[in-house]
Amino acid sequence: MLTNSVIRLSGVAMLCAAAFIGSAMPRPSFASDKVVIATTGGAYDAALRKWWFDPFTVKTGIHVVSVAATNAEMRAKATAMVKTGNVTWDLYPDGEIQVSSQDHLAISEQLDNFCAQFKDRQDLVPDACIPAGVRLFSTATLMAYDPKAFKGSQPATWADMWDTTKFPGGRSFPNFDDPWRVMASALLADGVKRENLFPLDVDRALKKLDELRPSISLWWKTGDQSVQGFREKDYSVGQIWLTRASALRSEGRTIAWSNKAAFLVGDRLTIIKGAPNRDNALKLIAFWLDSPDIQAKVCEALLCTPPSSAAIALMPQAVRDQMPSAQDVRDNIVVPDSKWINDHAAELLERWNNWIQ
């Protein structure tokens, strides 16, 4: 279980709004009684809808419309909507790193006044509600694998992911507008110490990725793609989100992961500047922070760490034992340098796009 001090360390997840994923709940009487939130779809959206969106609708009569998009598309779409003054979404989850960037602050509602009501909540982590956004949960990006694919020892480190002789099979990495974690894993595989990881040596990272490139059978852009590739055995070892790995396990799939090859990350709820249903969006967020039981159910389904310690206490011990612990973070899990990543985001993406072509 992550301690408050560890969680503070993280502050560490597409087609543009093509389809609306409705719930089985009846629509309220007034069309204005809605809130539109973007999610990455699939098991992620299903867990949020079952345990958060639908109970919110039952309590308030406000219908939650979820729109499927990749993380990159969420940021691009939100930026475009604010620039054109045609905002049709209300909120979306953005990465812990991205919310501290100037680009994010330019398109998001500042929540200073809203957050004041939560400042004395002892069960919430100190940064649960900050002007840039509200913590949805903390989780990890890590190396997951099929334990049945290997005889004998199992892969545990990023160096093992590069060892295709000892651990044969396809590999998988994400390919979207946030390439730092792929570069970082390459550097760790190349022997860079965790404490010396930032600033990233991009040249060295791409050179190391050249070695593994022939074995990469899937470059995924969405969480759904990452789990579908695993289901179809497109790869035996891959870098995916812990929430998605947990969803696979809940399906009864044989999957394992290693906290020795992991990055601490997290999502924050962002209200888009000019959101047409801003008040409803604030109600949805307040409902999240005020409902430890709902946080517990969502994070039990997705294997994440909720912002409330009361929620963590409600989760089964077997689930809590699978969450990254304070010892994991102390000894193995990488806490990314958010400032460095944001300061060099454009450069990283340019280098990445040139390499991936």
Rank of each mutant, 00 (worst) to 15 (best):
E109I: 07
W241R: 05
P93R: 04
L206E: 01
S101C: 05
D224M: 13
P316H: 08
V334C: 00
F30K: 14
D163R: 09
E195F: 06
V35T: 09
K339I: 09
H63I: 07
R171V: 08
R278A: 11
V125P: 04
S250K: 15
A18F: 15
L349F: 07
D120C: 03
D94E: 12
M1R: 14
L188N: 01
I341G: 05
T157P: 03
A245I: 03
D90A: 07
H63A: 15
P93F: 02
F198M: 03
N353V: 08
D94L: 07
K83S: 14
A128Q: 04
R330Y: 13
D201M: 01
V237Y: 03
D127Q: 13
D54K: 08
A286G: 15
A17R: 13
T60K: 02
L218F: 05
S308Y: 09
A186F: 01
V82I: 10
A43T: 14
R121S: 10
W180P: 00
P147T: 05
P168G: 13
R75D: 08
A17T: 12
T139A: 14
A68V: 12
T84Q: 15
Q225N: 10
R194W: 02
I21K: 14
L188M: 09
R27Y: 09
F150N: 08
L314S: 14
R213V: 00
S101L: 04
L15A: 15
N353I: 04
A275I: 03
S185K: 00
A80T: 06
W352M: 10
A116V: 11
A275F: 07
S338R: 15
W352Y: 09
D120M: 11
G229M: 12
P214N: 10
N196W: 01
R171T: 11
G191F: 01
V82F: 07
K283Q: 15
V265A: 12
P276K: 05
A205N: 12
Y44P: 04
I271P: 05
Y92C: 01
P26R: 01
E109C: 05
W89K: 01
L348T: 06
Q317H: 09
S226W: 06
P276E: 02
S291G: 09
K193V: 08
R204T: 07
I271Q: 06
E251Q: 14
W180N: 03
D267P: 00
G41T: 03
E73V: 12
G85C: 09
V202A: 06
G169Y: 02
S258K: 06
P131R: 01
E347Y: 08
S66W: 11
P131T: 06
F150T: 10
F176E: 13
K260H: 10
K193M: 11
E350V: 10
G229Q: 09
F118C: 04
M315G: 07
F173H: 10
I107K: 13
V298I: 09
G61M: 00
E300G: 15
L349T: 11
Y92D: 03
G22W: 03
S226P: 02
A245F: 11
F56Q: 00
V87N: 11
Q122F: 06
D203Y: 02
L269Y: 13
S217C: 10
L2C: 09
L349W: 02
A189N: 02
S153H: 08
P55I: 03
K148R: 13
F167G: 00
T60P: 00
G229T: 10
K59H: 03
V134H: 04
